[in-house]
């Protein structure tokens, strides 16, 4: 398996299936782990980092869940490839920014990925389509157990799993759910909801670092606290809260349909019209319009449209994906042309 193979397949988190997939794009859990006896990555020497990579790779090669996985040394791949992996949410942007002594392992189905020598020696993540934290947890829990059999993790009886930053200590777990909340934004209730979330030790972020201003309707909600609560309590807590946000979004969608049906339909069809006919389009305009079309798809305003196709457009219109599809480096202007062309082709249904 190589990077080009990823381009041919659909990311797990974009399959548009799973519970509540009309509102929840994906569920993700990551665990931070460190090896006992080594300094944390930030302070580690080159030899130590190389040793850590070797140890972890040896163990990962034996784990059945990673059969056929892709092992990538970040310093050996191009900048476009690094950005491509960030766009697919398989690694963090920071991980690619300093590529030396960094290894990324991706399971063949893209459900699991392992970053070696990120801020912590190990950052493992699982990603599932839809609102499915429980399944994501079961997968990552089993994987963590398999790793712990072979690796000696830095663990403290009182503080739990030890991490480079005290904001991750304890469970080392961050569970996050990506939601599409256009109706809460349209009805201006979103701020109230985000404030309530912040009070409950949950954090909200945008879709990506990049082009985030325009992706206003996508929100990632995750737990802030990692210590003093067990993994299942944390997952229960965040799931309960997300359940409520989903309900609010559904109510807002129904209210919009009842009170402003014509306006809503107009918005959806206009967005669809622009996407189907534009010749030059930026990444941020694309995300904005796709958000409206996705809402139309979820509310059956647009017949024949499916979430999977829209999700695919979200990702293949990102800068690195466009360049990978084209097979060469493109300037931002060239990308805007190519993006419009791809969208027209795919929406020509």
């Amino acid at each position: 398996m190589n990077i080009e193979d990823l381009l041919k397949q659909k990311s797990e988190w974009l399959r548009g299936i799973g519970p509540d997939s009309d509102i929840v794009v994906s569920s993700r859990i990551r665990l931070a782990r460190n090896l006992r006896g080594y300094p944390f990555t930030h302070w580690g020497g080159d030899d130590e980092k190389a040793e850590i990579i070797e140890k972890i790779v040896t163990v990962c090669e034996k784990i059945s869940r990673l059969k056929g996985a892709l092992f990538l040394r970040i310093n050996e791949i191009s900048k476009v490839d690094r950005q491509f992996l960030v766009e697919r949410h398989l690694m963090s942007r920071e991980f690619g920014a300093e590529p030396e002594h960094k290894m990324l392992i991706i399971s063949s189905d893209e459900v699991m990925s392992v970053m070696v020598n990120e801020e912590d020696h190990l950052r493992i993540q699982t990603m599932k389509s839809g609102f499915d934290l429980k399944n994501a947890w079961n997968i990552i829990d089993a994987f963590d157990e398999a790793l712990a059999k072979e690796l000696d993790f830095a663990y403290h009886d009182e503080f739990g799993y030890l991490t480079a930053c005290p904001t991750n200590v304890g469970t080392g777990m961050r569970a996050s759910v990506m939601l599409h909340l256009p109706s809460l934004v349209l009805t201006k209730q979103i701020d109230k909801i985000l404030q309530a979330i912040a009070k409950l030790s949950l954090t909200t972020r945008g879709l990506y670092g990049e082009g985030t201003e325009a992706s206003g309707n996508f929100f990632q909600i995750s737990n802030q606290v990692t210590l003093g609560r067990s993994e299942s309590e944390l997952i229960e807590h965040i799931s309960g809260m997300i359940g409520q946000v989903i309900e609010h979004e559904r109510n807002a969608r129904n209210a919009l349909l009842e009170k402003n049906e014509a306006r809503l339909k107009d918005r959806v069809w206009r967005a669809f019209g622009i996407l189907k006919s534009s010749r030059i389009i930026t990444s941020s305009e694309t995300i904005d319009l796709l958000s409206s079309v996705r809402l139309g798809c979820d509310l059956n305003i647009l017949p024949g449209m499916n979430t999977e196709l829209l999700n695919e457009l979200f990702i293949i219109t990102q800068p690195a994906h466009l360049q990978k599809l084209e097979g060469k480096k493109l300037t931002p202007e060239e990308r805007d042309l190519k993006r419009a062309q791809i969208i027209r082709e795919r929406l020509n249904i």
């Binding site: 157990e145 403290h156 739990g160 005290p166 003093g228 609560r229 067990s230 993994e231 309590e233």
Partner: peptide
């Protein structure tokens, strides 16, 4: 020094949850 910091940012100083097997 870390205990008061953890109390502040995490609301707790004691881990509850899974631990590596064999410990």
């Amino acid at each position: 020094s870390l205990a008061p910091l953890l109390r502040r940012i995490q609301g707790s100083t004691r881990h509850i949850g899974k631990s590596p097997k064999g410990k």
